[in-house]
Every structure is written in C-alpha cells, then in structure tokens.
C-alpha cells in the first residue's frame, strides 16, 4: 500500500495531500468518494506532510439570535494566505513601477493584468466613469485568482470552493453594484427603476420581481465561482480515487496523467473564473450605471 502512495507522491506533487486522506480509508471502498469530497471541504485543521495542525477554535458568538462561529478554519487560513500573497505581489509591483520608468519583471506582469482589466473589462462595460471602481475590481480579480490557485499547490486549499466565501464575495459585489447605481443615478432614479416603469397598481408584483433580479445576479456569481472551483477538485479527486477502486498500481499512470492534465486545465479555470467574476461584476455595475447615461448617449 505504501508503495502505491510513494509512487503517487513522486508522480504528482499536487495530489500528495489527497493521498494521505485516501490512504486511511482505502479499506472502505464505498466511502472513498465521500471521504475524498471531504478534502475539498472546510476543516478546523491544516493538512501538512506529517499529519494535521489544529487551528484555533473559538466558542460561537450569539449576535441577533444567530450563532456565529469565528473559529479559524482551513479556508480562513488560506483566505489570509491569499490576501498576504496578493498584498505582497501588488505592493512589490507598485514599488517597482513607481521607481523605474520602464516596468520590468513583476511590475510588468501585474501591469499587463491591470491594463487588461481597465481596457478590456472596466471601460467597455462601465465607460470612463468606471475607472473610479478600478481598485475594487482589481482587488476582486487578484484575490479570487490567488485563492483559486492556492488549491493547486500541495497541501493547499481553495477557499473559493467554499460557498460561504463566494457568498461573501457576492455580498460585496451586491453592495458595490447597488451603491454604484445609486451614486450614478441618484436615489430617486434608482427607486423609480425598481418599479419597472409600470402602472402603480402593478407595483406589488413588479417590485418583488425587480428586487429578486437584483439579488439573483450576485447569487449567480456566488454559485458559478463555487461550482467551478469545487467541480475541478472533484474531478481530480475522482480520478485519483480510481486507483484505489481498482486496487492496483498498474492503472495508476492513466488517472495520474488525467489528473495532471486536469490540473493544468484548473490553472486556466482559476484564471478564467477570476476573470468572469470580475467581468460580470463590472457588467452589472455598468448596467446599473448606464440606465441614465445610455439615454444621454442615444441623443
């Protein structure tokens, strides 16, 4: 059994975290997938090469009748790791670019993304006005990107494969979409837009429909990111699981080759999902902002 694990470990670094979990449960074949799926979920400990590190646990706090558990979990930990990585990279890039006239290395690399987000996402969707919201969208893009990527590192975990994390990002997106619309149109126009421009008798039907529309946009953002990031992991985990189902090392190369391929695909998916989240957030912000400006443009 250990020889199998050793082979896998040397074949693919990215799955070494999974194999530890798997090794303990190979006897219960029917439970393998359930156990494998646990790997993508939150846990109160960190997986390290020699076992587990328990993270601090706090007693739940009761706020407004809701039990809130502020314990540091694996996903909170990787949330912070990602935040620190983003901060480090972005500050290094900013230092480099302000120092020299010609951007090089990390400064140039980050600037390519910044220019891309500005010229291909913000300005086409929101116009020149949107440049004001650049810091928010840049933070969203880089934070989600790095969170997506941390799961591809051995023993790492993807915080965005947790629906709570993506829900929180969607809540922030919701606030930004509404506040940018109110800022651009004024509160009166914003509320008038919610009635859908129909007769006031229909308002009791119309307003819930429009309000539901406001909520589903970020909700879809949340579910899309969560599903994509979880889905990729489930595919990798399932492929590795095949080895233990067949209980032979001879099938190992095929799932591992697939897993490595999927991992490369995951790199692309991580980038793509960060892009899509940023793109759609700016699109929704632009839709809210252009209700008034598009009328001006049409004349």
């Amino acid at each position: 059994m250990s020889s199998i694990i050793d082979t896998i470990k040397t074949s693919s670094h990215t799955i070494s975290g999974i194999t530890d979990t798997v090794a303990a449960h190979t006897e219960h074949k029917e439970n393998i997938f359930v156990e494998l799926l646990h790997h993508t979920q939150d846990s109160p400990y960190l997986e390290v090469p020699f076992g587990h590190i328990n993270l601090p646990h706090f007693p739940p706090v009761n706020i407004f009748g809701i039990e809130i558990d502020f314990s540091i979990t694996k996903h909170v930990f990787f949330l912070w790791v990602s935040a620190i990585i983003v901060l480090f990279i972005a500050v290094a890039a900013a230092r480099k670019n302000t120092k020299s006239k010609i951007p090089k290395g990390i400064g140039n690399f980050i600037e390519v993304f910044v220019v891309f987000i500005r010229d291909e996402i913000v300005i086409p969707n929101m116009g020149k006005e949107g440049v004001r919201y650049m810091p928010y969208l840049l933070t969203t893009f880089f934070f989600i990107l790095i969170m997506n990527l941390t799961g591809l590192v051995p023993y790492g975990s993807t915080s965005t494969s947790n629906v709570s994390v993506t829900a929180a990002l969607a809540i922030i997106a919701f606030v930004m979409i509404q506040s940018s619309a109110i800022r651009q149109q004024g509160i009166g126009h914003y509320l008038a837009h919610l009635t859908g421009g129909v007769h006031w008798i229909l308002w009791p039907i119309m307003i819930p429909i429009e309000v539901l529309g406001l909520f589903t946009k970020p909700f879809a953002l949340c579910i899309r990111l969560f599903a994509n990031m979880t889905g990729g992991h489930i595919v990798i985990v399932s492929l590795i699981g095949l080895i233990f189902i067949f209980k032979t090392i001879w099938v190992a190369p095929i799932p591992i080759a697939f897993a490595v391929g999927i991992n490369i695909l995951e790199l692309f998916v991580a980038l793509l999902q960060a892009y899509i989240f940023t793109m759609l957030t700016s699109l929704f912000m632009g839709l809210g902002m252009q209700v008034s400006s598009s009328k001006e443009n049409s004349h």
């Binding site: 979920q41 502020f70 979990t73 929180a168 990002l169």
Partner: peptide, 20 residues
C-alpha cells in the same frame, strides 16, 4: 457542502475590505 457558515462570511468580508 452547501452549509453556510456566517463566521466564514464575516471573515471573508473583513479580509476583503482590509485587503482592498
């Protein structure tokens, strides 16, 4: 898998706002 953890939501929002 679809359990919502309010603590994690708050941690994410706080982290995001500080980071931003």
């Amino acid at each position: 898998m679809l359990d919502i953890n309010p603590g994690l939501i708050i941690w994410t929002i706080v982290t995001f706002l500080i980071l931003m």
